[in-house]
């Protein structure tokens, strides 16, 4: 498999704090990667940098051979891309906005997704519950035919039936040549989905390993394996 995303020695500081320190990783084309780590470990920051929301970093982010931020923005669909949209906008208006701005956005796919999630597109963002907003965000994010999907805690505040629906939609709409990075702290939700896990701790990547390798070689569930990284620290305290 080719590498879709190559990150090399990425370091990012903001507000006099180190938010990411010396992160290097590669992500193969056509894979689903779990980005695991505690809150504040740097998961969202890493996604922000890949998506192009932040620019003042050291190191390199190369997506399918491209380094230009504008080009990369067109190839990445980030679940935080709706943050800052006006709350007085209707979901339908926002979908139209996407349709007019992003060439790779598919209105047909969006409508299928919205129908699947029972979204009423006439509703305004301000009227949505947390769960409905998440479903809308997922619909917009997956309706873009991107090369890389960044899903930041997509199951937060979603009940388990709906979680399954989100997972099914990810599997249905993910293009063959695309990869997905999904962050979560309920590892068990997505454990079956993952090709690999990347464990992020203290603002850097501490391990990247194939999911079935964890089961085969360590005889552990992903959750146990992931927790072992955080336990060590607690034991040392």
């Amino acid at each position: 498999m080719d590498n879709l995303l190559v990150i090399d020695q990425l370091t990012y500081k903001r507000n006099m704090r180190v938010l990411l320190s010396d992160v290097s990783l590669t992500i193969p084309t056509g894979s689903i990667i779990g980005l695991l780590g505690d809150n504040g470990a740097g998961k969202t920051t890493l996604m922000r940098l890949i998506a192009g929301a932040a620019t003042n970093y050291q190191g390199s982010i190369i997506l399918d051979g491209e380094v230009d931020k504008t080009t990369i923005k067109g190839m990445v669909s980030f679940s935080e891309q709706l943050s800052g949209a006006s709350n007085d906008a209707r979901m339908g208006d926002l979908a139209k906005f996407y349709d007019s701005i992003y060439p790779e956005f598919s209105m047909t796919n969006f409508n299928l997704l919205a129908k699947n999630f029972d979204l009423n597109l006439k509703q305004k963002l301000s009227q949505l519950s947390k769960g409905m907003r998440r479903n809308f965000v997922i619909s917009i994010t997956l309706a873009r035919r991107a090369r890389l999907y960044l899903l930041d805690e997509p199951f937060d505040g979603i009940d388990s039936m709906k979680r399954k629906k989100i997972i099914e939609n990810i599997l249905t709409w993910m293009p063959d040549n695309a990869s997905v990075i999904v962050s979560d702290h309920h590892v068990s939700d997505i454990a079956n989905l993952l090709d690999q896990v990347i464990i992020i701790k203290d603002r850097t990547v501490v391990n990247q390993i194939a999911a079935d390798k964890i089961r085969e070689e360590y005889n552990q569930s992903i959750e146990e394996y992931y927790e072992s990284f955080y336990k060590e620290e607690n034991d040392n305290d």
């Binding site: 056509g30 894979s31 689903i32 399954k164 997972i167 099914e168 599997l171 249905t172 079956n192 989905l193 993952l194 090709d195 079935d212």
Partner: peptide, 14 residues
Amino acid sequence: VRQLAVDLTVNVNT
């Protein structure tokens, strides 16, 4: 393959 993946909610590669 994709249908099986969706039905079993696992990755296509798996």
